[in-house]
């Protein structure tokens, strides 16, 4: 709009300003032309569903009386619903254990692979990354077999040491069974990202540190890890977002771990059960929105405490 107004008010230097205006307008148009297609998809499949879910979550459908507007009743219900609360508590506990474990292992492996350069190290890097290429559903099915009493090897392996194998599908151990699956699935991916970041460090820094008398460990802890901390932070945030939405693995193991995994095991499973199992779309929307709130608060709390907000978002 300002561009047009400038044109209407002729004064000295009008031509150059109008020319600049045309350039600016062109830049606006070109920018939106490139971004436009994605913006459309963004509106249609992110903004619109979110707005619609927010809208849906404000209603309740009853057998008698039909659908009625209830404002925040669904949310009050969700945050006092033992199913939602226990599921949320589970994914929080699970995140606190699984994420540091995965990232710790991934970091250790990345540092090793950065230090050891042999044929075997290269082979190991690929093999550790391999599970990332496996759909989480298939990964869960594979581990389900390994945990299974009828055809899993755990009994044999523990038998070698004269011990009885733990049943990783029982309600006492399912937590660890799932921690193991996600660790196997994601460590390789995190490792590759951290490894790539390590490879991006200028090696002359190491030479300088060595001349100053730093040893391997000091180089790792004082130079390498601080320099790749943005990558570590990025992984932490993404794994937190992913883990709070935990769905695929427990959903797949549910038939095998009867009794240990209920339909409300994680908030996402609960939302799925409500929306598609019980055709309670309104409450399902409220739960997934509430979960979105938990993710948002979780990520922001995390970024706040690490005080690194500006390096990422």
């Amino acid at each position: 709009m300002t561009l047009l107004m400038e044109k209407d008010a002729p004064q000295v230097g009008e031509r150059t300003r109008a020319a600049r205006g045309r350039v600016r307008l062109r830049e606006h148009l070109l920018g939106w032309l490139f971004v436009g297609p994605f913006a459309l998809v963004f509106l249609a499949f992110l903004i619109a569903p979110l707005a619609y879910a927010a809208y849906l979550s404000l209603f309740q459908r009853k057998l008698i009386g039909g659908t009625s507007f209830v404002l925040f009743d669904n949310y009050l219900k969700a945050f006092t619903d033992p199913s939602f609360l226990s599921g949320t508590w589970f994914v929080i506990r699970f995140s606190l254990v699984a994420i540091p474990l995965q990232i710790g292992i991934a970091l250790a492996l990345a540092l090793i692979l950065d230090a050891v350069t042999s044929m075997f190290a290269r082979f190991a890097r690929l093999m550790i990354f391999l599970p990332y290429a496996i759909p989480t559903v298939i990964g869960a099915i594979m581990w389900g077999f390994l945990y299974s009493k009828s055809f899993g090897p755990l009994a044999d392996v523990f038998g070698l040491f004269g011990a009885t194998a733990p049943d990783l599908l029982s309600s006492n151990n399912i937590f660890y069974g799932l921690v193991n699956i996600v660790t196997w699935q994601w460590v390789g991916y995190y490792m590759i990202i951290l490894y790539a970041a390590l490879q991006g460090i200028d090696p002359s820094l190491y030479e300088a540190a060595r001349i100053d008398g730093a040893g391997r460990w000091q180089i790792a802890f004082r130079i390498k890890i601080p320099l790749i901390s943005p990558a570590i932070l990025l992984i932490l945030v993404f794994s937190l977002i992913g883990t709070l939405q935990f769905f695929n693995e427990p959903q797949i193991l549910r038939p095998l771990a009867a009794g240990a995994i209920g339909p409300d095991f994680t908030p996402n499973m609960y939302a799925y059960q409500q929306a598609f199992g019980l055709a309670n779309i309104n409450y399902g929307s409220a739960i997934s929105f509430a979960l979105g709130g938990v993710v948002f608060v979780g990520v922001y709390a995390f970024l706040f405490f690490t005080r690194k907000r500006r390096s990422f978002l």
Partner: peptide, 26 residues
């Protein structure tokens, strides 16, 4: 541009599965 890009970054945090239920209804 800045606002739109901030939205894209914010979208990284939206649980993908939270979109599935309303998208299904739509």
């Amino acid at each position: 541009r800045r606002f739109a890009f901030a939205l894209v970054l914010g979208a990284l945090m939206v649980p993908a599965t939270a979109l599935v239920i309303p998208t299904f209804v739509m």
